[in-house]
């Protein structure tokens, strides 16, 4: 039972050591990402010079929206980075090797890649989230802090699910994957703004089709005591976590199905 876990940490450990050989590059990555976030923040601040709030959300409340999605995304990235790189494995025809090794293919993929630079992104997300919470002067009971943790775990499950789906799709298509990026990264950018500023068709995609709004927007309504601008039932924030879990489970089912239908290109 513990053996796969030990193997996982050994494999990941070797990845970390190999990446640590490039310390400068790690630092540069971290710092450039940080400066990027600061720049973007300054851009948003300039917009806020000309308005009090966007769609009823203040700058600090938006920092909360940004912090929660970004943290979920970067943690998921760390955990299932292998699936992000998976299309390349398929393209090179290396997946067959995974299949003949005496370990589960899913396990091999998640332990094949690990990107410490994503840790930098996660730290920065925590920083933004922390700053947002600080300036919001929240006065939460234990239940809201727990809810925040659950929300972020849900977000991680949701994004991990998206990455698994992304990787699985590469069994059929490599080129169309770019479009999936619109939903992952475009959706994430969208989720750092209040959903109510967008056109109905656009936000409906991210509520009903790819339910990104459940990663941060609906939970934030409950956490920050904001009224629901769409008049959805009040239980919306509370189905977020189970829904995100479902997305992850669905992605696993899709993956299994994909592996069963995989046809090697052979060569």
């Amino acid at each position: 039972m513990l053996e796969p876990l030990r193997l996982y940490f050994r494999l990941i450990g070797s990845r970390v050591r190999s990446q640590m050989q490039y310390k400068f590059s790690f630092f540069a990555d971290f710092a450039s990402n940080f400066v990027g976030i600061v720049m973007e923040f300054v851009g948003t601040m300039i917009l806020f010079l000309h308005m009090p709030a966007l769609g009823g959300w203040t700058l600090t409340q938006m920092a909360f929206l940004y912090g929660t999605t970004e943290l979920s995304l970067s943690l998921a990235n760390i955990l299932v980075e292998g699936f992000d790189q998976f299309p390349e494995v398929i393209r090179r025809g290396e997946f067959d090797t995974y299949l003949i090794r005496p370990r589960n293919a899913f396990f091999q993929i998640i332990s094949s890649e690990f990107a410490p630079r994503r840790i930098g992104r996660a730290l920065q997300a925590i920083l933004v989230l922390g700053a947002g919470l600080w300036f919001l002067q929240i006065n939460w009971g234990i239940e809201k802090w727990l809810f925040l943790c659950v929300t972020i775990m849900g977000g991680v499950a949701f994004y991990a699910g998206l990455f698994v789906i992304y990787g699985t799709l590469s069994f059929w298509t490599i080129e169309a994957l770019e479009t999936m990026n619109i939903f992952i990264y475009g959706g994430t950018t969208m989720a750092s703004y209040p959903m109510n500023i967008f056109a109905e068709w656009m936000r409906n995609i991210f509520i009903f089709v790819i339910p990104l709004a459940f990663v941060n927007f609906f939970p934030a309504l409950y956490l920050l005591d904001k009224p629901d601008p769409f008049g959805f039932p009040t239980f919306m924030p509370f189905i977020a976590f189970p829904l995100c879990g479902l997305v992850f489970i669905a992605s696993l089912v899709f993956w299994r199905w994909g592996v069963r239908h995989y046809q090697s290109t052979g060569s």
């Binding site: 917009l47 703004y193 500023i197 967008f198 656009m202």
Partner: peptide, 11 residues
């Protein structure tokens, strides 16, 4: 582009 446009509309 659409995303940014709606931010400006909100602004």
């Amino acid at each position: 582009g659409l995303l940014r446009a709606y931010v400006f509309i909100g602004l």
